[in-house]
C-alpha cells in the first residue's frame, strides 16, 4: 500500500462576492515509502496549494477542500484539527521556500529545533538540545553548539535552509514535503542542499514530495514526476521515461526551454509562449490549448481525459510524437 494516496484532491478558494477559484482540480498521485515524487509546474499551477492541503495548512475559511489524502490508510482531510496537529511535524515534515522568512527572527535556532522534539517526542529541553546539536551536525552545519544559540539573521541562507531541513526531519517523519526548497538560494548552494536532501532521505528512508518548477531538480532527485498545469496533472511518468520521451506538449515545452550548455553561441532559448494568466478553466476544453503548439479544434471544445498509456498518464488530445527532440536527462 502506498504511504500517501492523494485522490481527486480539489481546492476551491471562495471569497465573498468573487468567482470561486479552482486552484487544484482533481489531482491524484501516490507516494510509496521511501520514494521521491516530483510535482512540477510553473507559478500558479497549484503545486504549493496541493502541498498545503496535504499538510492541512490552508486557511479554514475560504478554502474548500474535497477528495481524499490517505496517509498510511487514514484520510488526513477527515482528521480533527487536534489530530492533524499531532501528525504534523511527527509523521509529515515540510520545508518551505524562503529560509529567512520561514524561521522566527526572535527565537534562537536551538529552540526552534527543540520545540518540535519536545512536542512530539516528549523530550525534556536538555535532552532535546543534545539531539538538536546532532541534527544540526547531520545537516552539515559547522560548530552546531554555537549555532544553537544564534538567531536566524546570524546564519547564511544555505545554513538557514539546512536548519529548516533539520527541523522538518527532527522527528523522522515518513514523509517530507519540500516546497521549492532551493528557489531562494544561490546556484552553488542549491546543489549542496539538493544533494543533502537526497542523502538524508535515503539514509532515513523518508518519502519525499518535491515541489519545484525546476526540471533540473527533478532530474537529479525524483523517481516519479507529476507535471501540473492549471491545477490538473497533465502528465505523470517515471523520471527517465518523462525526460526521454515527453508526450504532453507542456512537458515538452518545459524541457525544450531549458538552456543547454552545448547550444551554439547566440542560439535563442525556446520559451512556452504566453503565460498562465492566459489560460481558460478546464471546464471548456484544455486549459493549455491557448499556449499549445499542437492545439487542434477539439482541444478548445472537449476537456481531455486522463489516459493510461503504457504506465504513463497523459491528459492530451494531440500528444507530441515520440522522438521529437527536447532535452537530455541532466544529473545533478
Amino acid at each position: 500500500m502506498a504511504l500517501l494516496e492523494v485522490r481527486d484532491l480539489t481546492v476551491v478558494f471562495q471569497r465573498k462576492g468573487e468567482e470561486p477559484f479552482r486552484a487544484v482540480d482533481g489531482v491524484s498521485f501516490d507516494v510509496e515509502p521511501g520514494q521521491t515524487v516530483g510535482l512540477v509546474g510553473e507559478s500558479g499551477c497549484g503545486k504549493s496549494v496541493t502541498s498545503l492541503a496535504i499538510m492541512g495548512l490552508l486557511p479554514k475559511r475560504g478554502a474548500k477542500i474535497t477528495g481524499t489524502v490517505r496517509y498510511d490508510g487514514t484520510d488526513l482531510l477527515k482528521l480533527s484539527d487536534k489530530e492533524m496537529r499531532d501528525r504534523r511535524g511527527r509523521d509529515l515534515g515540510m520545508v518551505f521556500q524562503d529560509p529567512l522568512s520561514s524561521l522566527n527572527p526572535v527565537v534562537p535556532i536551538g529552540l526552534q529545533v527543540t520545540e518540535v522534539l519536545e512536542r512530539h517526542r516528549g523530550m525534556p529541553r536538555k535532552e532535546a538540545m543534545i539531539e538538536a546539536k546532532d541534527l544540526l551536525d547531520k545537516v552539515g552545519i559547522p560548530d552546531p553548539n554555537r549555532r544553537l544559540k544564534e538567531y536566524p539573521h546570524q546564519l547564511s541562507g544555505g545554513m538557514r535552509q539546512r536548519a529548516l531541513i533539520a527541523i522538518a526531519l527532527a522527528c523522522r517523519p515518513k514523509l517530507l514535503i519540500a516546497d521549492e526548497p532551493t528557489t531562494a538560494l544561490d546556484v552553488t548552494i542549491q546543489a549542496q542542499i539538493l544533494s543533502l536532501m537526497k542523502e538524508l532521505v535515503q539514509d532515513l528512508g523518508t518519502a519525499l514530495v518535491m515541489i519545484t518548477h525546476d526540471l533540473g531538480v527533478v532530474a537529479g532527485l525524483c523517481d516519479e514526476v507529476n507535471v501540473l498545469y492549471g491545477g490538473k496533472v497533465v502528465e505523470k511518468a517515471m523520471r527517465h521515461k518523462l525526460f526521454a520521451e515527453p508526450r504532453h506538449p507542456y512537458t515538452h515545452g518545459l524541457l525544450a526551454s531549458i538552456p543547454r550548455l552545448d547550444a551554439a553561441p547566440g542560439e535563442k532559448l525556446t520559451p512556452i509562449k504566453g503565460s498562465v494568466a492566459d489560460n481558460i478553466p478546464w471546464s471548456q476544453g484544455c486549459a493549455f490549448a491557448p499556449r499549445c503548439p499542437n492545439a487542434l479544434d477539439v482541444c478548445v471544445q472537449v476537456t481531455p481525459a486522463e489516459e493510461d498509456q503504457l504506465g504513463r498518464l497523459l491528459r492530451c488530445h494531440n500528444p507530441v510524437v515520440p522522438g521529437t527532440p527536447a532535452a537530455e536527462e541532466v544529473p545533478v
Binding site: R88, N104, V116
Partner: peptide, 9 residues
C-alpha cells in the same frame, strides 16, 4: 506557517 507545520500546540 512553519510553526504550524511542526504541529506545535
Amino acid at each position: 506557517r512553519t510553526a504550524e507545520s511542526k504541529g506545535l500546540t
